[in-house]
Every structure is written in C-alpha cells, then in structure tokens.
Design a protein around this nucleic acid. Structure first.
Lengths: 193, 193, 193, 193
DNA sequence: TATGAATGAGGCTTCATTCAT
DNA sequence: TATGAATGAAGCCTCATTCAT
C-alpha cells in the first residue's frame, strides 16, 4: 500500500543529541532570522543547524512555533535584569537597552510580533513584557530617566520606527545603530547607549 | 503592401503597442507592489497588465528593473509639483506630502530604494530627488514651514522610520497613517495632512 | 530578493504541443487512475505523460480538476449512444453497458463521484447523466428491458456495489467482470453483456 | 541483585509489559483503521496506543503484519459465537451479523483481505472462516434461515459489494448501513438486523 | 514582436524506517 | 527491551525563466 523506504543513514547522533539539536536549530534560526528576515527557508535553517528538515519539524511544528521560541528567549533576555539594578530607573534603562539592541540586531524580533500578533502565544509574551515594563517605566518616569508624557505604546512605536531604519539601512553606509540612536534622541527617549 | 495573411494571434497588437504595454505593466506593478509587496509573482503582474510574461520580460529584464522603473515614476510624481505652487514653502509641502503618502501606501517604494541602493540607477534617482529638494527645503526653512535644524537626511530618516510603522502595523488596529502622523509630529516635521 | 534560476532546457516542444500535452495528461491520468486509483501521485501522471509537473498544473489546477476532466469524457462516452439505437430500450442498454464497463475498468470513475460529490462540477455531471438516463430508463421499463420496480438510484447503487467487487477482487482469481455480472443478475438488472 | 542505578527512562515497563503493549497497539490500530482507513500513519497508531514507534515495529514488522493481526482478532470475534446459540441457524445469524457489522464499520477489514489476499496468513484465516461457516451455513439453509441456492462465495461477494456501498457512500446523505441492508435484502440474504 | 506554454528548481510537509541510548 | 529521536525520501505546489511559434 505505502511504498517502502530502504534507508542509508549518514549519521544518526541519537536521541542524546536532541537538546543539542534543538539549541542548534534555535541558534541557526536566530542567526538567519537576523540576517535574512523571518522568511528564510526552513531548509536553510536546517542546513545551518546541521540537522535534517524532519528534525526541524519535530522540534517546531511551524515557522511561528520556531519564531515564538526564538522570541521567548529574547523576551527572557529583556526581563532578566540582574538584581543588582537596584532602582526601577536602572531596571528600565537595562530593559530598554535590551529592547533597542534586539531591534537593531534581530530585525525578526519585531517582525515576529508584527506578523503573528494574533497568535495567542505572541499575545501572551507581549503582555508579559508589558506587565514587566509598566511599573518599571513608571518608576523611571518618577525619577526623570524617562520623559513624563510617554506611555508603553510610545516605546513600542519607537521600536517599530527603529525597525524601519534598520531594515532599510543601506549596506554600505555608517551604522544603523547610529541612526536609531539619533531617532530615539529626537523622540526624547533614552538612547540606550 | 499590406500583409495578406495575418497570422492568427490572440492579440498581437504589434510593435505599436509597446509603449502602451509598458505603461500597463508599470501600472500593474505599482498596484501589485503596493497591495502585495515587492515580491509579487511576475505572472500576477503580467496578468494584471493583460500582457504575456514574455512581454514583461522584454520590457523589464528583471524585478529590479521593473522596480526601478516604478520608482522613477514615483520620483517624477514627487517632482511634478504644479507650477501654481508659487512659493518654495508650498512646493516643499507638496513634495513632502507626496513622499509621505507614498511611504504609507507603497511600502515597496521604500523597499526598492533600500534593497537596491547600490544600483546606479537608484543612486541617480536618489541624487535627483535630493537635488530637487535641497533648495526647496531651504526655502521652506526660511519661511518657517520646515524646522531650521534639519537636513535632507532628517527627512529620509523620517520616511524610513515611517516605513517601519507601516510595515509592522497590526492588521486589526487603527490606521498606520495615524501612527505615521504621530511620529512626524513628534519629530517636529510637517505632518503632510 | 528572489533567487534566480539559470535554466538548462532539455526539450521545449513549444506551445504547439499544448493540446497534445493536455491529451497526453488526460490519457495518462485515465490510465493511472484506473491502475492505481484516484490518488496516484501527480508526479507519476506527469511522468507517464512525458510532461513536467508544472505543465500538469498549468492544465489542471488540482486533482479534482483533472478527475473532472477525465470524468467528463467518461460521461460523454456514456451519453454518446449512436443514433442507430432506435428504441429507448436499446439506448438504455447501450448506456448501461457503458456505465458498467466503466465501473469495471475505471474504478476511479466511481471514486471521483463518491469523493467529490460536493464539487459543483461533479454535481452537474451527475445531474446530466441522470437527466439523460431518466427517460431512457422509463422507456426501457415500458418495454420490459429493465425491471419495473427500480429507480435511477437502484442503478447507481448497483454500480457502487459493483465497484466494491472490482476494488476488492483478488488479483489471481477469475475476472471481476464475471463477479459483477453475477451481482447484476442477482439484482435482476441487465447484465450488460 | 536488584539493580542499584536504574536508568532514567520515561516509562519502560520492561518485558513484562510486552503483551499489554501488543494489545494496546491492536486496539489502537483497529480503531484508527476504522476511523481513518488502512493507511493511517504508524506514528498515529503508536501515539494512540501510548507506545513508542520502536515498540510498534518490534511487535509488527510491517503494516501488513499489523493488519493481519487485527484481522485475526476480527475472525476470532466472528467465530466466538456464544455456546448459548444452540442451533446452527442461530450461530449462522450471529456470525453473519458480525461480518456485516464489520464490513460497515471497519472498511479496512475488507481492504486488508483484498490487498493482501496473497499473504499466506490471510489465506489461512480465510480458510479458517470458511471452514467454520460451511457447516453453519448448511444448517442455516436446512432450517430455512439462509436461502437454499447460495454458497459461501455468495456471502463473501455480498460483503465485498457492501464494502463498495460503504466506501462510496456520500457523506451528507442517509446511512451507509441502510443501503447495505437494502442490498442484502435485494440479494435475498439475512439483513443482519 | 507578442503569445502562451514548457521547464525545472526549490520550498514545504509528511511519513516510513532506523538507531543510539 | 522501550524510548524517543534522526534520517531521508517522496509528494505537493509555486514560481522565475526560457522558448517555439
């Protein structure tokens, strides 16, 4: 009924390699998402991770799943501000710096949020970030580190605008980073130096 | 010497139709680039233009060629400010409005420039626009319509940032246009109402 | 943006071959549907027709389209009873024979109707057959060629039951045809000898 | 001599669980064959049986092996007519009812027999059933429960024809069961109410 | 020159099958 | 022995690109 597939295996590193594979896939995805955008071929990711496409599918059922996983790590990075940052203002600056850095280096970070905003997991993560940021921003405003008139949305708009700069930055000229800092400054936001 | 046995061809309007074809293709491309992004299938463009794929290729050897041609028309549109706009300030506002409108409605416009910034034709066009805008902006600054502290680059950066807002605008919320106007306002630029 | 595909063509028989290709595809599909059922791989059909898969897709957008096209020819065959068949009874026998023959030789004929009964084109064809058969059956009943107590549905049920015999007929034993005739006889229907 | 360092394994219940596993696999296969046809993915069967794919392969080297095993249980079910059924006629009706029920609810049952009729195990099982039915049918014929003119083959043909009805039954209309009963009635067979 | 195919290269998924542990 | 991956082979489908006419 179903055709049979005689198999010649090149290298089966066995189940023990699973976590390593998963990590390799995530790393490859993060890199390629950054370099080539959210729509790199799965085959490219699999190859970069030295893994068969099947394995990629086993670990991540869909492109969104993969993006969510990458995104989750990014979110965790944003929120894992060392305890040492005593004041809310400091914590705000640390988190904001992370977010800007990510925007600059991982364009797909923004694209994921934009393209799959409807995905419940993305919504959850977004809300998680917002919940984390809300009090922190308030404290930062109290201590004058962040401008009084802004809201969370102001920050996200600034990031999306920065995304535009990064995405369209001409390859052969200066750094996108500088442009982003210029934009933030013009908007009266911390430049996340 | 009229041919006696015209070949049966569905609709071969002969060489005379070439310019019309070209225009039809450009119009189709502009529309589809706007609606579906820069990577819309060639076949779709040809179909929309009621033209065979072969003709499309005859007129535009590659996607970039096509994009450049569309871009050229956009640039011409920007610069074809009616003579009636007596003052430089008015001409600046007219041109700027055009540019912002294009950014909002033709995301591919920005993408074209960004992705093929190295293409000499794009460089030429860019320079052409800059040459046109330079004096116009200066006059606008003199008459207080544009802020004194800015340069041409400020404008282009604002457009690229606006592109970010448009590109990442969540489908189910408000209008990207509003966000763009908010951004321009925050940057002290004319909102091109 | 999009990768380029340098091309090495083996044999482009040109547009002139289109009708021939279409026919070849239909023939291949008819044969393979018969031999291997409605779910033969498209690739197999394309290969059998000596045509690239792309061509197959150009001519038939989906498996159902292809099946419908094959089915249409079958239906036409059923209804193209020579005028020479003077009486309705004769025409009934001719059509019925066709239908039984098709059931025996083209299992996919029945499968198409069953699996895509909801497809409007299939519904149309079904209705077309019914419209043709209704008066013909009536006449046949009048002249005693068909049993009085039956309806059109009786005929279709008999065909679907015959399909079961054909589909499950053990390869190495007698002919499915004989079994079908036996069944029809047991049901009091013309055996379409 | 109890092992001191049992390996960490999710759920390796050891060799003792083998029969239980086998049963679980058979149950899962029977259900999924019925629900989704004979070509349901092995992975689905393994999952439904809460067993790893490896175990499935250990117990059943191929799809046919699995199908044969399921078939064996079906055959056993047919023949395990309670002793209480005193008369041969009763036993015939009980067995026949079983067979018809199976045809209606387990399309894969018939398909298995049809597709691997050459498999010696299937041949054996077929013969086993025939051996069981022969005297039972004879008795049933003696007591008038079954028509006098039929043979074992008549029964099997009726089942295969019924399969055709079930397999091609239009989703949105009445019950296949009713059609089958109608067919059996038309053939003068007990309707296995 | 315009047309309408034809070609073939990917990218996407889903599984059967094989192993390392 | 059971587990849970890993592998790779199809099949599907969508284009970019090239041609015969």
């Amino acid at each position: 009924m179903t055709p049979t597939h005689p198999k010649v295996m090149t290298q089966n590193r066995g189940p023990a390699a699973a976590p390593a594979n998963r990590d390799a896939i995530l790393a490859a995805a993060r890199q390629l998402f950054a370099e080539r955008g959210l729509d790199v071929p799965f085959s490219a990711i699999a190859q970069e991770a030295s893994v068969s496409q099947g394995v990629l599918y086993r670990h991540f059922r869909s492109r969104v799943d993969l993006a969510v996983a990458v995104f989750e790590e990014n979110v965790a990075a944003i929120m894992q501000v060392p305890e040492s940052h005593a004041s809310g203002a400091d914590r705000f600056l640390a988190a904001w710096t992370q977010m800007v850095d990510m925007t600059v280096s991982h364009v797909a970070f923004i694209e994921t949020v934009a393209e799959s905003a409807l995905d419940p997991r993305i919504e959850d993560l977004s809300e998680e970030i917002r919940a984390f940021l809300r009090p922190v921003l308030a404290e930062a405003q109290d201590s004058g580190v962040a401008p009084a008139g802004i809201t969370l949305e102001t920050l996200f708009i600034a990031l999306r605008a920065s995304y535009g700069l990064v995405k369209t930055h001409p390859i052969n000229e200066g750094s996108a980073r500088d442009e982003v800092e210029g934009l933030l400054e013009a908007l009266g936001l911390p430049t996340a130096r």
